[in-house]
Design a protein around this nucleic acid. Structure first.
Lengths: 186, 186
DNA sequence: ATCACTGTACCGAACAATCGGTACAGTGAT
DNA sequence: ATCACTGTACCGATTGTTCGGTACAGTGAT
């Protein structure tokens, strides 16, 4: 069997960075080819349905990353809720490079979204949200407060990314995360 | 002057709706032509520098709308601050069609933004922010609280739009606006 | 151990369609 | 008669996609 020049995960990671930075329409085949080192026809060998397949692979890849590095640690009840939230924020800051990199949830939300993709993104968002709510309740919040604050937190992540991109104030995202951390259990 | 089939403002309004719904790259010349009823050459007559000019016109148009319908009413000191904020939220809800329509600040933030466009967007954002801060101080907030809450408000607008687009929960934006209204003066 | 065969991985070249943009000949209100 | 405006036709470049073909590692019968 012939060997792959790049494994699926590394490939998805490279594609992901292109999609999040250039948007779905901005991620042209030639750019993806250039970044991954695979010719366009080779990309079609790995992703027979073309761009749609690549988007799906990226979403699945990022979803797996989210579950592994964000959601599971949130639900790991060996540590105090406050500590887990604090660690999540560290992870999130790193994932978005302190707010300089975009979120797929925003990037892929334009145009007519493939229904399947949208459902995947929705599932990831809801899983993240559920984990936060669970954490909030563990910390003593009632159901409603936990829901409201968790939704608010995820909303602020997206808003902060947009505003930081707009204003080029590199502290926007970091400050927002630190502020929301304090507010979450209050 | 020879006849003009559509005036500048109506034209900008139509272009605006295409840009905010399809994104910058998704707003193709043929689509813009179809929507406006002007052939490509006519569009190039009105906007000699092509797409860049159209984007600029749209940004200037929306900026003017923002100043007229949002910022000036915010600064009109004949009404109580609480009332003015409440009215702004009504306007904002209408502008984003209860969260079903996107914001230019988000849409145009992708790819390498024309530096001039980015500066225009930035000025609009800062004007809006300054008006909110002014309102907060009039309502008795200290400088720091007014700043933090104003920034937070504009951030939540963007975040709510992203999340609503993702989850298709049509209440997300409305609920967020109503919630933030209560929090603003607290 | 040899050799025909298979399946996977990759690539070059071409595909139709569409992109943003231009040239030029009208068109009609003034 | 002028001139801002609009339509038809066209351009080169780039889009996503397909196809024929090559390189190579593994398989199984001999």
């Amino acid at each position: 069997m012939a060997f792959q020049t790049i494994d699926d995960d590394s490939l998805a990671e490279l594609l992901f960075e292109v999609f999040r930075s250039r948007g779905c329409e901005g991620a042209t085949l030639s750019l993806l080819s250039e970044v991954t080192g695979l010719k366009k026809s080779s990309l079609y060998h790995r992703f027979p349905a073309g761009k749609d397949d690549m988007v799906k692979a990226v979403v699945l890849y990022v979803g797996a990353q989210l579950h592994e590095h964000v959601i599971e640690p949130l639900l790991n009840s060996k540590e105090a809720p406050e500590k887990r939230l604090s660690k999540m924020i560290v992870t999130v800051k790193a994932f978005y490079c302190d707010g300089t990199k975009n979120c797929l949830l925003n990037v892929l939300g334009f145009g007519q979204v493939n229904a399947e993709i949208n459902e995947l993104l929705n599932k990831d968002y809801n899983a993240w949200l559920a984990a936060l709510i669970q954490l909030g309740k563990e910390a003593g919040l009632n159901q409603n407060d936990a829901e409201v604050r968790s939704r608010h937190f995820l909303m602020v992540i997206q808003g902060a990314l947009v505003i930081q991109r707009l204003t080029s104030n590199k502290q926007t995202f970091i400050n927002s995360m630190d502020y929301e951390e304090k507010q979450f259990f209050k």
